[in-house]
Simulated assay, not measured.
Amino acid sequence: MTAPFLSLAQIRNRLILTARWVLRDHQPAPDGRCPACRTADCPVAVAARDVLRAATEVHLWSATARPDEPGQDGPRETG
């Protein structure tokens, strides 16, 4: 459960911990099937990996956004 007073970093950390917990529970058995879902390609594990990838690669909470090209701060005015 997330409360309104948590920082973005705390929410991110909770997402990462939850995704890791899910991956531990849905780790494939020696036969290649998920012990919880009983499928070869567990959709829950795929979703947890996607959450981990998004939480560790994307930093959307950055206070300063970088422009795509140097020297351009935003949309140009046409006149």
Rank of each mutant, 00 (worst) to 15 (best):
I11H: 01
L6Q: 10
R66Y: 07
R20F: 11
L52Q: 04
D31Y: 03
A55D: 04
D31H: 05
T39P: 01
A45N: 00
R53N: 10
A45V: 00
L23W: 02
D41L: 14
E77Y: 11
L52V: 06
R53G: 05
G71Q: 03
R66W: 07
A63K: 09
D50F: 06
P30Q: 14
D68S: 15
P30N: 13
N13R: 12
R49Q: 12
A29P: 03
F5V: 05
S62P: 00
V58E: 11
G32M: 06
P35C: 07
D73T: 09
G79W: 09
D31W: 03
L23S: 01
E69Y: 12
A63R: 11
R14M: 14
C37S: 07
L15Y: 13
R49W: 03
H59L: 07
P70T: 02
R20V: 11
F5A: 08
A40P: 02
P30R: 15
Q27F: 09
E77W: 10
D50V: 06
V22K: 08
P67G: 01
N13S: 14
G74P: 01
T64W: 01
A48K: 01
L52D: 02
R49A: 05
T18K: 12
W21T: 15
F5C: 06
A3D: 12
M1T: 14
N13V: 06
D41G: 10
G32W: 05
V46R: 15
L17E: 14
T56A: 04
I16K: 05
Q72M: 12
R33E: 04
D25H: 12
P67M: 01
P75C: 08
E57F: 06
L60A: 10
I16D: 03
A36D: 12
V58I: 13
R14C: 10
R24S: 13
V51N: 03
